[in-house]
Design a protein around this nucleic acid. Structure first.
Lengths: 343, 343
DNA sequence: TATATTTGCTTAAACGTTTAAACAAATATA
DNA sequence: TATATTTGTTTAAACGTTTAAGCAAATATA
């Protein structure tokens, strides 16, 4: 009843040669005559031969599959990174398996198990916010499987890491706001324990110092960076006696929430309060006013991550070491922080 | 140099039993004693045994991998569908491989090849806009691999299909606009050759007839539904002598473009022109005014698609037949088409 | 002409599982 | 007590490749 698949043996039988010869012919082995290769290709085509990946992967120990773990695909940043990883790896004969952790540590562990079980040749991951226990990732390392982290993770695991310069991004943002004559700059930051957010916070603090601006505890708030929390934290800032005249939010969704609250309270953006987000999600360019934000170079991150994996495989690196690639981020100035138009 | 993996044989050696016994113990075979099972589990744990998926898949002919093909992951609809497919299938021991066609036919063909090569147990797909030649999908069918289509594809291939009732959605939208006292309703539709968009167009036409509204050729426009084209087509509508008082756009991105043009021209929404989109992308709820849109029940579609695959596998269906599941869509009324507030 | 090298293939084992078939020992049934 | 059944295991083949080793024939080298 089941449709029989064509194997290398079927081709061998037709041509009266060995299966090994067929395998070599298909791999363009130099020890196989041009004539035989041609014959094999022809018969393979006629019989609709499709190589069995499982068999070759099992035998050769290479699955040509790379696992990608992201907190979610439903974000421009991550889906763009993925797309670029795929583009680079496809060209080299790899396919990717995408899994989402949904920011959950449990789901992340399951994803890792699935990927290991599937015998991936490598894992490219951005860690969930929740993740603090790294033993699961250590497991990947200890199996000798190349591990590349991007965006979230940085130097926690002593493996390759690709990300942007969060610390410096904060500097650029603060500098921009200073140029806009802002004097009291607030920061709605992410979780301090997540390194990238911590870096943004440190950058914010140091930049304030550099420009001799007040570093006020009330103006530095920790958030989970959802829309809802962005709203809540913005309300908190508005309730201050001494309101800020600029708010730098470490994530675009939270920045959107903040924007909604400002609009609802008829606060003029950017004149009363200027607003800057982070991530350059497409909607930042769609809302009113358009939100200034930081472009994280997702394309470049994806490409670099893929290349880092390829390098591992090519050079057969056994011991992984910390190898950071830090890209410069770019502030996209839009209406929400640009007072020049009012000149 | 390479780290050796623990195999079933290693466990067998430790316990002085056969590899077959270990395999059965791990699969909880009823013919293996509880004691042996316990021993096997213990040793497996100690040696950090991780089953080799390639070997078991090769032998058993089941890879426990399901391929998913979408036009792009960077859309709330698709990423939500994927998430729900994953949730259902993970519970049953399947992992999914996600590939993006980027709306390109070529990329779609490559994806199919990759998935077949990877020996997936099934493919769940939503076709690229470009796709008209179905021979590649026929290839999947002819290999006896379960194929499930959702959103794009419908009855073109005589396989399972899950989607919403596009025809009826148009009815609901027109009815809503009629209730809002709109008299000249325009439709910026998708490509006629793509069935779902064709259905929306047919629904629009029939609903106009039902409510005795003018069916004006100028008011029915074909678009690729990008933001840019939404802008262009809205400008086209505004240039008409006899402007519409409502515009129903078959995609949210194009609806957003239309909204921008209306705002730029200081046309009051919804009083001068009411606007309705399609897809309920999150940004419809973020822009000003918020855009009414149609919720496509991505969660339900994902779950149903996964279940359709599981059913195939369970019942060992060989010949695939057309089996449509059509869900009722839901119109989310927001500011862009709700005049009640002005009462 | 004798020997070495190259060419083009074959043989056979291996990758790590699963599974049908066989079988001995223990237990149940008549 | 003899026979049937159940229990718990082993043996061996199979899944479809790849690849090291081997070998005969053709060709090159001395």
């Amino acid at each position: 009843m089941k449709k029989k698949r064509t194997t290398i043996k079927d081709i061998a039988n037709v041509l009266n040669i060995s299966a090994a010869a067929v395998s070599k012919a298909l791999h363009n082995d130099s020890r196989i005559s041009e004539k035989t290769k041609e014959n094999v290709r022809q018969v393979a085509k006629n019989l609709h031969y499709q190589p069995n990946h499982l068999a070759s992967a099992l035998r050769s120990g290479k699955s040509n599959l790379v696992g990608v773990i992201v907190p979610r695909t439903n974000s421009n940043f991550f889906s763009s990174v993925i797309q670029n990883i795929e583009e680079v790896l496809n060209k080299k004969g790899y396919s990717i398996i995408i899994t989402q952790s949904n920011e959950s540590y449990d789901k992340e562990c399951k994803s890792i198990d699935t990927l290991l079980y599937t015998q991936v040749d490598g894992i490219i991951a951005s860690m969930a916010n929740e993740t603090v226990d790294l033993s699961y990732y250590e497991k990947v390392k200890s199996k000798g499987i190349p591990l590349i982290l991007f965006d979230r993770g940085e130097n926690d695991l002593n493996v390759d890491y690709i990300g942007i310069d969060d610390y410096n991004s904060s500097h650029i943002i603060v500098e921009h706001l200073v140029n806009q004559k802002c004097k009291r700059i607030a920061h709605i930051g992410g979780f301090k324990r997540t390194r990238i957010f911590n870096n943004r916070i440190r950058g914010y603090i140091d930049a304030l110092k550099k420009y001799n601006l007040p570093l006020d505890d009330e103006l530095l708030i920790e958030s989970n960076l959802t829309i809802e929390d962005g709203r809540a934290k913005m309300k908190q800032l508005l309730s201050l006696k001494n309101r800020p005249d600029a708010v730098y939010v470490a994530g675009d969704y939270a920045a959107l929430g903040a924007l909604q609250v400002l609009n609802e309270n008829n606060i003029s953006i950017p004149n009363d309060i200027a607003l800057v987000g982070f991530g350059n999600e497409p909607f930042t360019d769609m809302v009113t006013p358009r939100i200034s934000s930081v472009n994280q170079h997702s394309e470049e991150i994806g490409k670099q991550a893929a290349n880092a994996f390829l390098k591992h495989n090519k050079e057969n690196i056994v011991e992984q070491t910390l190898n950071k690639i830090i890209l410069n981020a770019e502030l996209i100035v839009r209406d929400s922080s640009n007072k020049k138009t009012s000149l």
